[in-house]
Design a protein around this nucleic acid. Structure first.
Lengths: 198, 198
DNA sequence: CCTCCTATGTAGACACTGTCAACTTAGGCG
DNA sequence: CGCCTAAGTTGACAGTGTCTACATAGGAGG
């Protein structure tokens, strides 16, 4: 009986409905009124939980950054070799984008404006991870920034291209295929292929 | 005296105003009515030249694909070594994104839907170029698709990260810096640095 | 030179959106 | 038990994309 006046956890329900909506119609297709409608609440109710539409996007993005950090950590912990750790992060990055396409898109959508002070320069665990791993992988005298940017660029691009349907779909039909492709790209770009990835 | 009833070339003027608007407020901030207003024409006038808002985005994107193809060709023609040609394409790709950020964003924005039959699977000169160069760079028995995807992923990611302000801005303040960074990333990812790029 | 046809423009309407202000209600705390 | 406040509602406003009906100008054909 929580479909009364007071909803159980409207904030959460709205976020879920928003993610669904974005999955259906894209980030630009998100409408707070439609989300409210789906949750069975009036059109202005969302404003009791979010100051504006952008804040909904921010909430989804922050959730995504956390998940990405977890996935990256989990992937790197299995390896000790610095380059292998970087590659693992990259593969996990691509796989994350594939498994949470809505969150990934929102994280990097132009129309979402992060509040001042929150990741103005990528100050988030998910990015610190990358920078730390890059520093560790850098030989004396090499540039950690360059290493980090390189290690970030290819998974970011690959993830985007896959989500945009720019990689022939028969090559990215399953999560396994995506993971294999990511490893092979990593190898092609200077890493070494771990055993058992073909 | 073309501020009469009939505008000189309203279609072109609208496209220019749209690009300006997007530069100011992002792709999501484009409004046909506002563009019409800036051009000094009524709110429905754009519909004499474009069936809908999406078509404006498509027109901008197609323009961008053409420019990208030109830039890629121009960059590759100077080199004969296959890997060097691929890297050159990548660097030109990043530089293109930097010089035409609006077009680049529109080209890869989720909210633009290309009409059926136009680049459904990247059938455009700009992408053919890449695939051809990849095929040429592939040793016997290696996978051309993998090579193309790899060679596309890093510039695409790097370009996106730069445009999103995710690369510390002091490292990408000028076109020269961007070009140098792109070359260094290419080298870091398996290519070889051409002479004179530091 | 005049007339009429059509491409190009305008005006007005509709449904939808984000957002605000004013009102209502329910549920927990004194 | 009553009241305060967090949470939800209703109604309004400006802005949007898009449609339909109307207006006009400028060139083609007589």
């Amino acid at each position: 009986m929580n479909d009364q006046y007071h909803h159980g956890d409207l904030r959460k329900a709205l976020l879920e409905a928003s993610v669904e909506l974005i999955a259906e119609k894209g980030v630009a297709g998100l409408s707070l009124r439609e989300a409210a409608r789906r949750v069975g609440v009036s059109h202005a109710a969302p404003y009791r939980h979010f100051p504006d539409k952008n804040s909904v996007l921010v909430a989804i993005a922050l959730q995504g950054y956390d998940w990405l950090a977890e996935a990256g950590e989990a992937a790197m912990v299995a390896h000790t070799d610095a380059q292998r750790r970087l590659d693992s992060y990259g593969v996990a990055y691509v796989l994350f984008a594939r498994r949470h396409p809505v969150h990934f898109r929102v994280m990097f959508t132009e129309s979402m404006e992060l509040p001042e002070g929150v990741l103005p320069n990528n100050q988030h665990r998910s990015f610190d991870l990358l920078v730390d791993a890059a520093s560790a992988a850098v030989g004396a005298g090499r540039d950690p920034l360059l290493t980090a940017v390189s290690a970030w660029s290819w998974p970011h691009g690959l993830a985007m291209l896959i989500l945009d349907g720019r990689v022939p779909s028969e090559n990215v039909a399953t999560d396994e295929q995506v993971e294999t492709l990511a490893w092979r790209v990593a190898a092609q770009l200077g890493g070494t292929l771990p055993e058992g990835v073909l």
